[in-house]
């Protein structure tokens, strides 16, 4: 389950309205408008900053979808 907090960080970074995008566990990063390879790191950095956590690049690489990313965030803050 993707939290409103994570959705908000993603949408704010990509300058999207929350109502305009659907982000679910199975959603993959590049299905989110504007989340392309060239600004992928901007999104990750914004999440790290918001949650005050640090991801290793290999941890991000192994996330298949946003549900995995949510789980990774949870594991860091939990």
């Amino acid at each position: 389950m993707i939290t409103d907090r994570l959705k908000k960080v993603i949408c704010e970074t990509l300058d999207l309205r929350l109502d305009d995008v659907e982000i679910q566990d199975e959603t993959v990063a590049n299905q989110v408008p504007g989340w392309d390879s060239l600004n992928h790191v901007n999104v990750i950095t914004a999440i790290e900053k918001d949650y005050n956590v640090r991801f290793k690049s290999i941890e991000i690489l192994k996330c298949q979808n946003i549900g995995d990313l949510q789980n990774l965030v949870n594991s860091k803050v939990g």
Partner: peptide, 16 residues
């Protein structure tokens, strides 16, 4: 402004 922002998102989606 909200309509313009939605249109912008839809343009990005069309590009995708």
């Amino acid at each position: 402004n909200n309509d313009l922002k939605t249109l912008k998102t839809n343009i990005i989606k069309a590009g995708m």
